[in-house]
Design a protein around this nucleic acid. Structure first.
Ligand code: MN
Ligand code: MN
Ligand code: ZN
Ligand code: ZN
Lengths: 126, 126
DNA sequence: ACCCAAATTGACAACGGTTCTCACTTTATT
DNA sequence: AATAAAGTGAGAACCGTTGTCAATTTGGGT
């Protein structure tokens, strides 16, 4: 565990919304940390493989990362305006996915499910 | 409607699986069509905006396109080995998405749902 | 068929996020 | 302190995609 990694880990711990590698890098620089962009990318992808952070790809092509509270499998409801994120755990979708796969003779099926909309507070501001 | 566009349209019509812009370009070149890669990109993105083709982004960062049979909203069950694609229309997920959004005070919620696994024929080959 | 404005095309440069390279520094172990 | 292994930084390279702009093609009016 290096200085750079623990700085990133600490930052993720106090960042509630999904952020891109570049955003996280800027945030670290902004608070005086000396760290390179390449290191941020490497650390994030290592954490993602370990399941320590969740990865999300928006409509654009850039990945965004988040330290999620619950360790178990879940999905995200993300505000497309402010980024506010709600973790959603429910078995309805998992059952649907399993049933659909079985009906079509598929196996080893994984699913990608994300919801994006406008959160209550963003709706108030209009 | 130009020569290039109709060639691409015809190709998509007889291509059952999701293909990338570059793959489609190579296929057209392979059958003797003179068409540039930029034109393929432009045509595909126009068709996507018109809803004439569906767009899917896999684990990598490249987009894949497919002329889907049903025009209404649906999801895809894709074989990660051979690309074989099944269109899935069911209301379970839509209801779950709407309910979840409402429970958390979100509005204007859209959902991205994709299933990927191994199809029956790919399973046989093992 | 001809004219012409508008749309489309092709070759190539540019872009943006990400990954690679490799010399150097830091870490962990003895 | 000595040493091997792991991590880092700067910048180049990568790759799918989008932009540029001159040249070509298209379609509607005549
Ligand atoms: Mn799930
Ligand atoms: Mn749906
Ligand atoms: Zn919001
Ligand atoms: Zn298959």
């Amino acid at each position: 565990m290096t200085r750079q990694r623990s700085a990133l880990t600490a930052l993720l711990e106090q960042t509630p919304d999904f952020r891109s590698a570049q955003q996280l890098h800027e945030m670290l620089r902004g608070q005086g940390e000396a760290i390179s962009l390449a290191t941020v990318y490497r650390a994030l992808q290592a954490m993602a493989e370990e399941g320590e952070v969740d990865v999300l790809r928006g409509s654009d092509s850039e990945l965004r990362y988040r330290r999620c509270r619950r360790g178990e499998h879940h999905h995200h409801l993300v505000c497309r305006s402010c980024g506010h994120t709600v973790e959603v755990t429910e078995t309805v979708v998992e059952r649907w996915a399993a049933r659909t796969a079985r009906e079509h003779g598929f196996a080893a099926v994984s699913h990608a499910v994300e919801l994006s909309g406008l959160c209550a507070s963003c709706l108030d501001k209009t």
